[in-house]
Design a protein around this nucleic acid. Structure first.
Lengths: 224, 224
DNA sequence: TTGCCGCTCAAACGTATGTTTCAAACAGAC
DNA sequence: GTCTGTTTGAAACATACGTTTGAGCGGCAA
């Protein structure tokens, strides 16, 4: 009761502050005062700030990676030997993300923004932690992508996967701000699910673009 | 002589360190010791750390935005009234970036990584600075995108532009790391030009994807 | 030469950070 | 109630940061 309350309050506050401001821009004092918890509690329960960062990620990444494995299991079972298509694979991923139980209404966008920060703010320890902790579902996703795009060379596929990651992490990480802008400019409401629904076709199309065009087009030519 | 030497040495060191480690993770003491310059020189010549960050961006962004305006002028002149195509617009942008005179061999990737960080590390002051300093070429680019994709609804176009920005900023902001990984895994060397050459077709294809697919594929729809 | 001004330098300042300490409060078992 | 191990609390610690200070240097005009 006492422990888990404090621990969870710290995790909640840290999660939100990290997502808002980044890791090194968020101090332990901000976290503990937002969580209404004593400063020393962080080091007592987690050991260090870096370990707290890891715990924040583990709290949502561990159940998510389990959900994702199940989704991949289902998908491969349904496909019965045939490799799943690119669209199926991408949808399995996004549906797993969207279906994760949310702690609050901002849940999924915090989730996404943290993932984006993890890749972006080159915190060596975090990268190492994520790699050795969650390599399995990641590798599996990569394998599915590979089987779904046999026409691509390894190098092309590698870069296009980075492009997908970037579009996803970036968009999701600032989806709140972007949604607000859209609301103000065009008077349109948008849910995270709708953003995902727009993102997936974009990614799939990019992933499957003709890879012939490795030099700038001659000046007149254009995409039909 | 004395002044410009110190100023440039500071800018060079800051540029490289910022690109390597981010802004708040880079201290003035790291910068001045790398530049072999006294600590106080930064505040003397630039006024503050934030002003130094602005100066680093201004040094390459000002000539770049001039180059870009010229490229857009040329493009629109060549098209003679017709709106430039999406590919032409994207290539005008990337070629302007790639052709910028480089200070050293890492020039362009530092340039790219800094731009990525600018979007990613939500440093309020930087964003404000860039917006009010370089809004013109940015707006022009947006207008060209709009004219090149008349088939898209405003909302679709809005989100796809965010996807493009994300893929670009994210990839560029970690292009060094990604290049290293690729080098180790597949033993392939990659230049920034080649990354750009892979990125543009990806973006163009995503931008022009069929926008029909706004729900997951049929089998077993799960988002209730 | 003298005086001045732009610049550099070592040192210090005030503040904020992550972490540690140790006493007090607490809970549950006996 | 007493003991025991766990959790909290206020305070301090050492360190790093951005910034400021004031003395000193060097070239150059008068």
């Amino acid at each position: 009761m006492a422990q888990s309350d404090t621990v969870d309050r710290i995790l909640d506050a840290a999660e939100e502050l990290f997502a808002d401001r980044g890791f090194s821009e968020t101090s332990l004092r901000m976290i503990t005062s937002k969580a209404k918890v004593n400063l020393a509690a962080v080091n007592y329960h987690f050991g260090s700030k870096n370990a707290l960062i890891h715990a924040v990620f583990a709290r949502f990444l561990t159940p998510f990676s389990a959900t994702l494995e199940n989704a991949f299991d289902d998908l491969e079972a349904r496909c019965d030997g045939e490799p799943p298509t690119l669209n199926q694979t991408l949808w399995a991923l996004t549906e797993s993300a969207v279906r994760m139980p949310q702690r609050n209404e901002k849940g999924i966008s915090i989730f996404m923004r943290l993932l984006g920060l993890a890749y972006t703010q080159s915190q060596g320890h975090l990268r190492k932690f994520l790699e050795q902790e969650y390599s399995q579902p990641f590798s599996r996703f990569m394998r599915l992508l590979k089987e779904a795009t046999p026409q691509l060379s390894s190098v092309d596929r590698y870069w296009r996967i980075q492009f997908m990651l970037g579009a996803t992490a970036f968009t999701m990480s600032s989806s709140d701000a972007l949604r607000d802008i859209l609301q103000n400019k065009l008077g349109v409401e948008t849910t995270v699910q709708e953003i995902a629904a727009r993102l997936v076709p974009f990614l799939a199309a990019g992933m499957q673009a003709d890879d012939a065009m490795l030099v700038p087009p001659a000046h007149k030519s254009s995409v039909a």
